[in-house]
Amino acid sequence: MGLSRRLFVTGAALSLAGCGAPRGQQAELMRPAMLAASNYRADGIPARFGDTDPHGWDGLTPASLPVHGIDAARYQGEIDWHRARGAGVSFAWLKATEGGDHSDPGFRVNAARARGAGVPVGAYHFYYFCRSPEEQARWYIRNVPKRAGDLPPVLDIEWNHTSPSCRRRPSASEVRAEMRRFLAIVSEHYGTRPVIYTTVDFWRDNGLEQFSGYEFWLRSVAGHPMERYPGAQWSFWQYSGTGVVPGVPGTVDMNAFAGSPGAWEGWLSRRAQRG
């Protein structure tokens, strides 16, 4: 998500950080080339997908879990959701907002098409430490309509080392307090508690093992979450930022649900928005 590495081919290969467009501006969708998953097969990754920079998985691998999905932003351009669903994409979260004044133009395009293809879709907010949580929650609500069947909201909270405009790093107690303020507003509006996405260093630095009452989506591209987040309870695992998925241009973040297909259907019935 925020800092994941992605490959785009626009005549030449470029590596871009997913840190969003300049604030207050609507960036155009990217137009990366479509890659063939068959050219990027990787051990430990489900055979229907690929990875341009795979980890040497052993032990518990992403392929050991049956339910997989993606998260994406404008960097992926326009996704062929029917093809992605046919390849085994069971869910998707799309970047919708960042801070208090940036919205991602890919959200409205791809969210509607995902719904049309029968892929459960939701929206994530990338947290900016130089805006109040109240302002950011209001901005998210303004840009993400409440829709029956959509996935719960996601708070993407991580250190943004590349931000040119915000170097603030609150204390762990301040971080947890800001999270609770943002999450309370969003929970009340959508009638369901958001999922929290975070990274290994942010989890460790801010004592998020103390943060209860919410489901976690954990980034761990160099080991199973049980290795990188000892004792953590999690519902989703982001295992690659360089995945190749049919129907998705360029590369994309790949994720797995922590359960069986039956457990996934049960989770959806409990956690999907009611509208």
Rank of each mutant, 00 (worst) to 15 (best):
K146Y: 02
A112T: 14
Q136D: 11
G116I: 01
V119L: 05
R147D: 01
E174V: 13
R169W: 07
G122T: 09
K95M: 07
E98K: 13
A123F: 03
A112N: 10
Y124V: 04
P120F: 06
E135K: 10
R138D: 14
E174I: 01
A172K: 02
F107E: 02
A114W: 07
D150G: 02
V109H: 01
V154W: 05
P152M: 11
W159I: 06
H161N: 10
P164M: 12
N160A: 11
R142A: 15
T162E: 15
A148P: 00
R169V: 12
S171L: 05
V119Y: 09
Y128S: 10
G118P: 08
G100Q: 11
G122L: 01
H125T: 09
Q136M: 08
N160E: 13
I141A: 03
H102V: 03
R131C: 04
T97W: 07
A123G: 03
C166P: 02
V119Q: 05
Y128M: 10
N160V: 14
R168P: 00
H125A: 08
R147Q: 15
E174Q: 15
V109A: 05
Y140K: 02
T97M: 13
G122M: 06
R113I: 01
E135V: 13
A172W: 07
R131H: 09
W139F: 15
K146H: 11
Y128G: 01
E158R: 05
E134W: 02
T97G: 02
P153G: 08
S103G: 02
L155M: 09
S163T: 03
R131E: 13
N143R: 14
P105A: 15
V109P: 00
V119A: 08
A172N: 09
N143H: 15
G99V: 10
P120Y: 11
E158T: 09
E98H: 09
R131M: 01
W159L: 06
G99S: 13
D104C: 01
F126W: 13
A123T: 05
R169N: 02
S163L: 03
A114L: 04
R113T: 05
N143T: 00
E158Q: 12
A137T: 06
A114E: 10
W139R: 04
C130I: 11
T162N: 07
K95A: 07
Q136V: 06
G106I: 00
P133R: 09
N110T: 06
